[in-house]
Each structure stands twice: as structure tokens, then as C-alpha cells.
């Protein structure tokens, strides 16, 4: 356990050295010293790792674009990070259609990040359709959380 923690800390140091733009330590690790800059946790806590979609839609809302603006910046900060965008759908829809819809949503995110300067070779996409709900339940509250694109650090 201890060894592992040390190893992680070393990676974090390396990552910080690699990037080192002038504002490398704003945003990133300032909120909590236990969060490693450039990690999934960093992205989720300090940037926002997911965007949400309307029913049967794959266009990006203003909130979603704001989140992705931050993600694009974060990706530029941590220039060696590669990510996979997971596209998801709520349970209302057939399995096949939701797989295709999740792929559309993931690509909406990827295309927006690309437009903001994140190279395509740092972003993969995968669709899980309705297979992996974030929130279990058959309510509008659950469904709205499940129609999502999640940026996952590889």
C-alpha cells in the first residue's frame, strides 16, 4: 500500500514537471492536496468530467460547452494525457439505437474538444448505450444523469 502511494506521488511529480506552463498549479491540485494533478479525480473534481444531453439529443448545451471548454484547457495543461469519451443513453430506447446514440454523443464531445484545440489522437470514443447507467432508477432525475458523455483518462 505504502509503496503504491509513493509510486503514484512520483508519477504526479513527473506529470507536473512535464507540463509546467505558468499557471500549472492554479485550478488543478489546489483544492485538495490528495488529488493528483492530471488524474481522473482531478478532472472530475476540479474541471467536470461529464456533460449531459437532452432526451434523444446529442447537441451540446451551454453548460456542456462550458464544461468542455474547461476540459480542453485541462487537456492542454496536461499535454501527455489521453482520454476516452464514453457516450451513454438512458434506458428508454432499444439496445441498438442507444448504442448508436451513445456514439453520436461521444463524438459531439470529441468534435467540440477538437475545435478547442485538443488533437484527435488524444481522444478516443466508446459508446455504452444504456448498458452502464450512472444512476439506477426509472425517474426523470435518473434518466437526465444517464444521458451523458464522460471523459475518462486512459
Amino acid at each position: 500500500m505504502r509503496m503504491k502511494f509513493l509510486a503514484l506521488a512520483a508519477v504526479a511529480l513527473l506529470a507536473a514537471c512535464e507540463t509546467a506552463p505558468k499557471d500549472a498549479n492554479t485550478g488543478a491540485a489546489s483544492n485538495s492536496s490528495s488529488i493528483r494533478p492530471g488524474s481522473q479525480e482531478d478532472l472530475a473534481v476540479n474541471v467536470g468530467d461529464r456533460v449531459f444531453f437532452g432526451l434523444d439529443r446529442y447537441d451540446l448545451s451551454p453548460e456542456a460547452r462550458a464544461t468542455l471548454d474547461r476540459q480542453a484547457k485541462w487537456m492542454q495543461t496536461y499535454g501527455s494525457v489521453t482520454v476516452t469519451i464514453e457516450g451513454h443513453a438512458d434506458e428508454r430506447g432499444t439496445r441498438e439505437y442507444n448504442l448508436a446514440l451513445g456514439e453520436r454523443r461521444a463524438n459531439s464531445v470529441k468534435n467540440y474538444l477538437a475545435a478547442k484545440g485538443v488533437p484527435a489522437n488524444r481522444v478516443k470514443v466508446v459508446s455504452y448505450g444504456k448498458e452502464k447507467p450512472a444512476v439506477v432508477g426509472s425517474t426523470e432525475a435518473a434518466w437526465s444523469q444517464n444521458r451523458r458523455g464522460v471523459t475518462v483518462v486512459d
Binding site: 446529442y58 441498438e96 448504442l99 448508436a100 456514439e103 453520436r104 463524438n107 459531439s108 468534435n111 466508446v126 459508446s127
Partner: peptide, 26 residues
């Protein structure tokens, strides 16, 4: 190059028909 899904055999068994999703198009 992209996700393939929704497969089925042709009635003669010689082909599999399926969908491929790439760049938001299936």
C-alpha cells in the same frame, strides 16, 4: 474502424449483416 454492433446472419449463412458507427454516423 468504428464500433460494430447489431449483427445477424444472412439466411444462407454466408454473410453477417451489422451496423458500424463512426464519427457519429451509423
Amino acid at each position: 474502424p468504428g464500433m460494430t454492433f447489431a449483427p445477424r446472419f444472412s439466411p444462407d449463412g454466408n454473410r453477417v449483416i451489422m451496423s458500424m458507427a463512426q464519427n457519429g454516423n451509423t
